[in-house]
């Protein structure tokens, strides 16, 4: 067990736990931030995507000890009222079906658009290819990322 001082969604918080604990479970079990989802546990599906200093990161394999001073942003901290341009684009295109993978999709899209605000269709596909959606909402995700890139 060890104490970690984390910066999650702009708030400083302290946790005392096994240093190997993945950030996914720190968020879900210790901080009650359940928007970040468990899908595979091996960084293959993208449902657990968070931002570490703005960089899209798979939280299911990231030990809390590796976070250091980096700021963690989760879907809950993306915007005050769900009005981030990417969230708005998601609503405009009514993307979700079951919705389980969508927080991870949005987090991937936000980090991607920050570095590449006006991507081509191919760049969108490459950036989003790591996030699985069994419902098959890929076309709407593509369209929503495109819309967000224009806003």
């Amino acid at each position: 067990m060890a104490i970690f001082n984390l910066n999650v969604n702009g708030k400083k918080t302290q946790v005392d736990l096994d240093p190997a604990t993945p950030v996914l479970w720190v968020l879900r079990d210790h901080l009650n931030l359940v928007g970040t989802k468990y899908g595979c546990g091996i960084a293959q599906c993208g449902a657990c995507t968070i931002h570490l200093d703005g960089v899209a990161t798979r939280s299911c394999l990231l030990p809390v000890a590796a976070v250091g001073n980096k700021a963690i942003t989760t879907i809950e901290g993306l915007s005050e009222n769900g009005d981030h341009p990417v969230q708005k684009a998601w609503l405009e295109h009514d993307v979700p079906q079951c919705g389980y993978c969508q927080a991870g999709q949005i987090m991937t899209a936000v980090a991607f658009l920050k570095n590449n605000p006006h991507p081509s269709d191919e760049e969108i596909e490459t950036a989003m290819n790591g996030n699985l959606c069994r419902c098959g909402t890929y076309l709407r995700i593509r369209a929503a990322v495109k819309t967000a890139s224009k806003s």
Binding site: T36, I75, L78, W90, G99
Partner: peptide, 8 residues
């Protein structure tokens, strides 16, 4: 449930 989904 759209907004609840996109805000996690």
């Amino acid at each position: 449930d759209g907004k609840k989904i996109v805000t996690g």
